[in-house]
Nucleic acid binder design. Structure first.
Length: 559
RNA sequence: UGGGCCGUCGCCAAGUGGUAAGGCACCAGGUUUUGAUCCUGGCAUUCGUUGGUUCGAAUCCAGCCGGCCCAGCCA
């Protein structure tokens, strides 16, 4: 495990205020937190917020954070998810103190349940699910007591043990807390603590056929681990009285406190595991690590750095306010990080051939290009040049407006690092499509400036045809066309059909490393790119992580 | 309409009774061999709203308005 290299800012939030107060009052000596995912899916950007909060707070206050798997629902969980979660947390740069499963505590939890029964605070209910639902009441009407509510502790003990000993089928009985069927808080209307489930558990196998529920398990797991600050999302606010009830009625090694914060919501994206699962299973994306997915693994494949994700979590803050973050915020931290670290290269994604008529056929030469315009320590590389080159199709326009600074008939542009060229002729095929361009170059402009000092507005990128490496490039756009696909009745309607465009005619300069290269490139004027897992020397594949900011596109759009 | 929670600039967010930080976005300039980066300046007389307390209120009190969550043997 690596230690986090990412910085969390000292910006305050209400949770840090609480911790400051707890430390100052002596209520807490060492801050202990936990990140408690259920291993029933892959981690996404929303989890990253919780990870950064829990691990960040623990680190900043000199405490520690556990990675605890909240695995009390065996039918939905698997080791595949366990492994992916561990990998993602590590990749984000955090180290856990310990990595327990809630299922490791099943034995202790069972003991706590017996304790509750002996105190007359829990009972075995033999109603079926429908009866229970009916008797629970509604938001406005109180519930009614179960006919089994007054069973004696002895009978309950005997029945609960029989449940554990595999004497009943699924659903025959449940163990319930005996609280208050009239409570205005529905979570307090005798919540279910244990259910019978004959399922193989990824960690405990077939040891158990009864499984505790979240509400019973979570606070006790926190208490067993000595967690001081149990941070969860807003929807658990109504569960806090139950969390407290359980801890108040049982002797536990410590007394954690639950505090809730708002979960992350991001425009144009989904962060519901259920819906992400549908995207994967219905084949709308290639998998959990599809680069369009805002899963940690998808973002990693897309080319996000862990530092950019941590920076994002830092910049959005932590509050109790429901909010939706604009995509621009994520894009901004990504660009900021990538701009600093990306090695510059030239690549042409949508090529059009240019023949430089006055450049000798058998000649070639090399230009030195800086690998980073602001950081000389990145060094330089040699870029081959020859008579035939590729330029971007978008960099040529036959009838160009005045503000178009790129190539068009009769106009002169600078080839980055190389020469000035002027467009002499447009070659078209029978269908009238532009096939190639004939240009002339000014030998005096070698290196990109001319002795006469004449100005050229545009500088475009290029790749020597003779030296080019053929490659495939994946361009990505947001997966959804509406800002809040999650609220739509059917999010399928909002799926963006053009979220992945494959460009298979791309041309790379030879200095680009094609295989097993985890480092970000900036292909000048096109954006940030990373080689895909599947990239090979024979079939190079790169993913565009993010475009550059494009003020020309903005001008063009407003026309 | 029972209970819980939330409302500070287009989007986030600091602010904890002494006179509205910051980021993103946006706008206007400058530098630039990436229409990138970088730099400069602009961008809330007002904090959902109404009333009250106070010398003084985004901060305290009351009412109202708006939004979110809860009726799994999910987490």
């Amino acid at each position: 495990m690596s230690d986090s290299s990412a910085e969390t800012s000292d910006s305050s939030n209400f949770i840090r205020d609480i911790i400051d107060a707890d430390l100052a009052s002596g209520k807490v000596e060492k801050v202990i937190t936990r990140f408690p995912p259920e291993p029933n899916g892959y981690l996404h950007i929303g989890h990253a917020k919780s990870i950064c909060l829990n691990f960040g707070v623990a680190r900043d206050y000199g405490g520690y954070c556990n990675l605890r798997f909240d695995d009390t629902n065996p039918e939905k969980e698997s080791v595949e998810y366990v492994n992916s979660i561990r990998r993602d947390v590590e990749w984000l740069g955090f180290s856990w103190h310990s990595n327990p499963f809630a299922s490791d505590y099943f034995g202790q939890l069972y003991g706590y349940a017996l304790d509750l029964i002996r105190q007359g605070l829990a009972y075995v209910d033999s109603q079926n699910a429908d009866e229970m639902r009916e008797n629970r009441g509604t938001l406005t009407a109180p519930g009614v007591d179960s006919p089994y509510r007054e069973r004696s502790p002895e009978e309950n003990l005997q029945l609960f043990e029989a449940m554990k000993n595999d004497e009943y089928p699924d659903g025959a009985h449940v163990l319930r807390a005996k609280i208050d069927m009239q409570s205005p808080n529905i979570n307090m209307r005798d919540p279910v603590l244990y259910r019978i489930r004959h399922a193989t558990h990824h960690n405990t196998g077939d040891t158990w056929c009864i499984y505790p529920l979240y509400d019973f398990t979570h606070g006790l797991s926190d208490a067993i681990e000595g967690v001081t600050h149990s941070l969860c999302t807003l929807e658990f606010e109504d569960h806090r009285p139950l969390y407290d009830w359980i801890l108040d009625n049982l002797e536990t090694p410590s007394r954690p406190v639950q505090t809730e914060f708002a979960r992350l919501q991001l425009e144009y994206s989904l962060t519901s595991k259920r819906k992400l699962n549908m995207l994967v299973n219905e084949g709308h994306v290639s998998g959990w690590d599809d680069p369009r997915m805002l899963t940690i693994s998808g973002m990693r494949r897309r080319g996000y750095t862990p530092e950019s994700i941590v920076a994002f979590c830092d910049v959005i803050g932590v509050t109790k306010k429901y909010s939706t973050i604009e995509m621009g915020v994520l894009e901004n931290v990504l660009r900021e990080d990538l701009n600093k670290r990306a090695t510059r290269r030239m690549a042409v994604i949508n090529p059009i051939k240019v023949v430089i008529e006055n450049y000798p056929e058998d000649q070639e030469e090399y230009f030195s290009g800086a690998n980073h315009p602001q950081d000389p320590s990145y060094g330089t590389r040699e870029i081959p040049f020859s008579r035939e080159i590729y330029i971007e199709r978008d960099d040529f326009m036959e009838d160009a407006p005045r503000k178009f600074f790129r190539l068009s008939p009769g106009r002169e542009v600078r080839l980055r690092f190389a020469y000035y060229i002027t467009c002499k002729e447009v070659i078209k095929n029978d269908a009238g499509e532009i096939e190639s361009l004939v240009c002339s170059y000014d030998p005096e402009s070698r290196g990109g400036s001319s002795p006469d000092g004449r100005k050229v507005r545009g500088t475009i990128h290029w790749v020597s045809a003779r030296h080019a490496v053929n490659a495939t490039v994946n361009l990505y756009d947001r997966l959804f066309t509406t800002a809040n696909p999650g609220s739509a009745a059917d999010f399928h309607q909002a799926l963006n059909p053009d979220s992945n465009i494959v460009m298979d005619q791309a041309k790379f300069e030879p200095a680009i490393e094609l295989v097993d290269n985890p480092l970000a490139y900036q292909f000048e004027r096109l954006g940030y790119f990373i080689s895909d897992y599947d990239s090979t020397a024979q079939q190079p594949v790169f993913n565009r992580t993010m475009t550059l900011r494009d003020s020309w596109a903005k001008i063009e759009q407003s026309r």
